[in-house]
């Protein structure tokens, strides 16, 4: 019988984010609409970010904070670095999303379509 902890680590923290990632990938492989492609990328972003956050998980972990009152070194600190990294990654993905959405608008303005098949014939 799977313990709750193993279930959490394996299925929620690893396979969960990965499956979200693959859903995004599936979207990229199948969708022909630019907006849907943008959404697929965002889904992939989400999956990766969740994966990063989940790697920092430590069972019964506490916040990795030293204060002047609490100078004791505690073994089950949660790793703070992935959380710091994920912030950067999220910022970047937001920026990219914004950019790519504006590109989509521009493309629509220029070609009056967001369908990939049509765009391929219009611009190569």
């Amino acid at each position: 019988m799977l313990s709750w902890n193993e279930f959490l680590i394996d299925w929620v923290f690893v396979y969960g984010p990965l499956s979200i990632f693959f859903i995004g990938l599936y979207g990229l492989m199948t969708q022909k609409n630019l907006l849907k492609i943008v959404i697929s990328i965002d889904i992939m972003d989400l999956g990766v970010n969740l994966f990063i956050v989940s790697l920092g998980y430590v069972k019964n972990g506490v916040a990795p904070i030293y204060t002047s009152k609490n100078l004791i070194f505690i073994k089950n600190f949660v790793d703070p670095l992935p959380q710091a990294l994920v912030l950067t990654a999220i910022v970047i993905s937001v920026a990219v999303s914004a950019f790519v959405l504006s590109l989509t608008i521009k493309i629509y303005e220029k070609y009056k379509t967001v369908d990939i098949d049509k765009l391929n014939t219009l611009e190569d």
Partner: peptide
């Protein structure tokens, strides 16, 4: 090179 994004992703995968 001439196919669209979905094909690219297939290739990558």
């Amino acid at each position: 090179f001439k196919s669209g994004i979905p094909m690219y992703v297939w290739f990558i995968t």
